[in-house]
């Protein structure tokens, strides 16, 4: 596994095996992948995502904006030499959807869209190969 170096150290100290959360932490060099920026309320929050850029930012912004419960969603990369991406989400206050729900839904929707693209691409490739024979 990716974190066996740490595991070995910990095992030597007689500590219990770490969970996948710690594993993630090691990959980021001790930084959190997701940090909630100060000033959050139930229907509005800004998130800081570590080591992401426009590749994810723009698509994720799009998918979150697709949610009718979302009032506003925007992303920014505050400084070009820091690999941090900030994403701001505000949901309508008369909906039960919180900013957290909206982010989660956006992420899940995009995963789903990706699945469909893979599936359709595989079909199209197989179809193309079949048509050549």
């Amino acid at each position: 596994m990716s974190n066996s170096a740490e595991r070995d150290t910990e095992m030597a100290n007689g500590e219990a095996e770490e969970d996948s959360a710690d594993e993630q932490e090691l990959l980021l060099g001790g930084l959190e992948k997701l940090v909630i920026l100060p000033g959050q309320t139930s229907h509005a929050a800004s998130f800081q995502i570590e080591q992401e850029d426009h590749t994810l930012g723009n698509s994720l912004r799009y998918f979150i904006n697709k949610n009718p419960d979302v009032e506003f969603c925007g992303y920014t990369i505050p400084h070009p030499s820091e690999t941090k991406m900030h994403i701001r989400i505000q949901t309508w206050e008369d909906t039960p959807t919180t900013a957290f729900d909206a982010l989660r839904k956006g992420l899940e929707d995009m995963i789903e869209a990706c699945d469909v693209v893979t599936e359709k691409f595989t079909d199209a490739r197989d179809g193309f190969e079949a048509s050549k024979q």
Binding site: Q24, K33, T55, L56, L103, R104, L107, E108, M110, I111
Partner: peptide, 13 residues
Amino acid sequence: VLQKKLAEIINGL
């Protein structure tokens, strides 16, 4: 790769 990026954030969330 794109999906793994998303999954990682879901994990953080």
